[in-house]
Structures are given as C-alpha cells and as structure tokens.
Design a protein around this nucleic acid. Structure first.
Lengths: 232, 232
DNA sequence: GGCAAAGTACAATGATCATTGCAGAAACTG
DNA sequence: CAGTTTCTGCAATGATCATTGTACTTTGCC
C-alpha cells in the first residue's frame, strides 16, 4: 500500500478529487455506506484522510452524495452514446434489421455493467440506503440518471414509431422501460446487478429472447399478410 | 400482521423468537445490516439484548441469515397462494378472461409489497450486502424464495399453454420472468421496491399496460383467417 | 412448593470509526 | 526564489457498538 500507485496524476489539483471519487465509488459500492471507512477510501485513493475532509467538508455524507451524482452522470452519458449509436432515427434501420440493432443496443448496455462495476454496486447501495438519503438528493439523482435515459430512449423509439417501425401503443416512456426491463432488467435481476455475471452465451440468449418478446409486443400490425415472407 | 404460529421452539414457552425475527426484519430492512444495532432490535422486540444472543449464538450474522430465510418463505407462500388462486390450470379461464386474471394476479402480487414492507426492505438490503453473504446462504435464499416462485409460475403458464391459452415460445421460466418484470418489475423499479409507493391509479395503469404487453407477446399465433375461431 | 429453563439488568471489554487540530513537507505560482 | 496553497502524518477525542459474564428474576411444569 504505497502512497504512490495506480494512476497518480500529480499534475493539477483537481486530479486528486477524481481519484478520491473513483476510490469512494469503489469502496462505497463494495462495502456500503456504513461499513465503508474513510480511511479505506483515502488509502484506495492514495490520499491522506485529512485531504478527504479538506475537499469534502461535509464528511462522509457529502462524499457519498457527490459520488452518487458523479458516477451516475458518467454511466448515463455512456448509455446515451450507445443509444444514439445503435438507434439513430436519422439513419433508421430497415425493418428486418431492427431486431439486430435492438440486440446490439441491449448487448452494449449490459456490457456497461462490466465496464462500470463500481457504479452498479453503488446503485445497489443507493437502493438500500434510500431511506437515509434526503428526498431532493434522491430526486436529483433519479432525474439526471435513469430518468434521462428513459426519456431519451422514449424519444428515439417515438421517432422510430413515426417511421412505422414500431407501434408504441400510446406511451413512449413505458415502452422504453419495457424494453430495458426485458433485456438488461432480466439480466440485472439474475446476476444481482452484475455482481455474479452470467456466461456470455446465457446472457446473449436472455437478451435475444427479451428483444424478440419486445418486438412481438411492439411491432406494428402488418397492414396485410404477405404470402412471400415466412417467419422463422 | 396476523402471523400467529405460537409454535414452541423447545418447550411450552411463549416463543419470543418470533417477535425477535419480526423486529429484526423491520430494523435490518430499515437500517441495513451494519447500521442496525442489536440493542435496537432487542428493544423493538421487547426483549433484552442478552436474549438475542441466547437464541442466536452466532450473533448478528446468524440473526440476519435467519431473518433472510424466515421472511422469504413467508412472502413466497403468499405469492404462491395468489398464483394458484388467480391462475389455476384446473379451472382455466376463458380466453377472453385471461387478461383479467393476469391483471388480478399482478395486482395482488404488488399488493404484497404493502403487506410485507419489511420483507421488501430486507430484499434491498440483501442485494446491497450480497458481497458479504456466504455463497451457500445466498443460493439457499434464492432457491427457496424467488426461484421457487418463478418455477411454479412457469409450471402454471406451461399448463395454460398446453390448453392453447398462451404460446411460451420455448422457455416457460423466461416467460414467467417476463411476466413478473413487465408488471411488478416495472413498479418495483419506479417505487424503489415499494419504498415510495405510487398512487393506485398509476399502479393500475402500469400493471394493465404490462399485462397487455405480455399478452401481445405471448398470445398464441394470430387468429388465422379461419371462420371457426369466433364461437365459444 | 420447587426445580430448571428462559429471560432480564447491568456493567465491562475491546474494537472500530468519523472527525478534528496541528505542524511540517510538497507542489504550484508569480 | 519567496509565497501561497495543498497535502500529509500523527495523535487525540468522542462516540457507537457487538459481545460476554454474572447475578438475579420470571415463568412453566411436575
């Protein structure tokens, strides 16, 4: 445990804050708010305990609240980027490619759980701590994080619906949530929010099945049965 | 609640164990494992701290593990009872009544979150503590709790599918999970696992929409252009 | 009544931990 | 280089808490 390991960008003061936030996310996510020790966080960040309190005069509680906002915007941005990469209404897929694109999107979303494990561990802790988090903090977190992704997904799905690729049955945000539930939602539940990951083939099967279920429920009714197209 | 077993653990003695378990579930659910104090639990149960250790020599950890199993079997039994009340393959619904029955089932399942708030708070804590729970304890909990409900739901859905009421598209357990996700799953997500409940009308809208989505995806092959299907 | 199991009150132990103050070292800025 | 800000090591404080031993009381049963 030397004080000089991992990335130690000695340049610039805000660099320390970043290391602290990363470490705090890790430790809070692993141990939970109460069990997590300021000393542990400081050590993991390669920083002295005192520095923690210099940067966060509000102590542990302020640090936790800051980490909540910090990690959730990171992941949200990643999710939005993937959403727009795989579902761009400006370049809509051909109808027969929609399933492929939805699978790619769901797959890349679930891959984020492997890229940001500390964040998703934090989410579990937030859920557990929810009764001890001030209402406004909780609302702000939901609003900048999950709700934004749902809203933006709903916008994209609406655009695809306008192109005749989907039938949202009235409520775009509900459709967006249904999509997320049927793909990453089922995986999250089975893996304890990525704590105990599933082998890739099984994860793929779940995602594919989820997307198929989603499409069976949200594909527009064909205007007319066409004798040429046989379904698998 | 009316959990009145009055069963005797060793000899004919008013079993305080039950009060302890109820209190522990309450406190663990509200405060989490680490923050919860043995003294608080004892006070809430109306017993002395010492009695806690007399009944659970393993201390806090053993108490937590016991509460996990205890509360999860309770809720599981309630869920199974509702499942069989509203979806009994022995008395299958007419096709046009299936949606009604599924809505009733989903509604009554979500009502359980109001009847056993402490249990669902415990579930949040279990998710948060998952990294600190021995693997076999976690597996046993999942197996007697959630997985049993999924398996039994899958069995019932399979029976309905055999009667031509549903098309499971191959995997009964996946279908069961999809049903739960689209109904109680969405509600759980939006309400932080029933911590911040939604007004009844909104909850009803979510459940109804979820069931409709489920049925759109799992209703057997679209009615063929065949004149025989309209009659009873 | 009288015995034994079960429960209680209380104090003590030992450990962990958030938080703060301080004096000096290090890094950055002009 | 001098000055200022930031960081660090260390020690101390005060608080909480799980756990245990002991002596005493209650309760159920014969």
């Amino acid at each position: 445990m030397s004080t000089r390991d991992t990335r130690t960008p000695r340049r610039g003061r805000p660099a320390k804050v970043d290391a602290v936030l990363r470490a705090a996310c890790e430790v809070f996510g692993r141990d939970g708010y109460t069990r997590a020790g300021m000393e542990t966080i400081a050590a993991e960040a390669g920083v002295s305990t005192r520095t923690l309190y210099n940067h966060f005069p509000g102590g542990k509680a302020e640090l936790f609240r800051t980490v909540m906002a910090w990690s959730s915007t990171h992941v949200r941005d990643a999710q939005l980027a993937l959403l727009h990469r795989y579902l761009d209404p400006e370049r809509p897929p051909r109808p027969q490619d929609l399933e492929r694109d939805l699978v790619l999107l769901a797959r890349s979303w679930t891959n984020l759980t492997a890229e940001f494990p500390a964040h998703f561990a934090m989410v579990r802790q937030i859920h557990a701590e929810i009764g001890h988090i001030p209402d406004d903090v909780r609302e702000a977190w939901q609003d900048t994080g999950p709700r934004t992704v749902t809203r933006e997904t709903a916008r994209v799905l609406s655009a695809l619906a306008a192109l005749g690729l989907l039938d949202l049955h009235g409520d775009p945000e509900r459709t967006a949530r249904h999509f997320a539930l049927l793909t990453s939602g089922e995986l999250a539940q089975l893996t304890f929010w990525a704590y105990a990951p599933l082998p890739d083939p099984e994860a793929d099967a779940i995602i594919t099945a989820g997307v198929r279920t989603f499409l069976r429920a949200y594909t527009p009714a064909p205007p007319r049965p066409n004798p040429g197209t046989a379904s698998r």
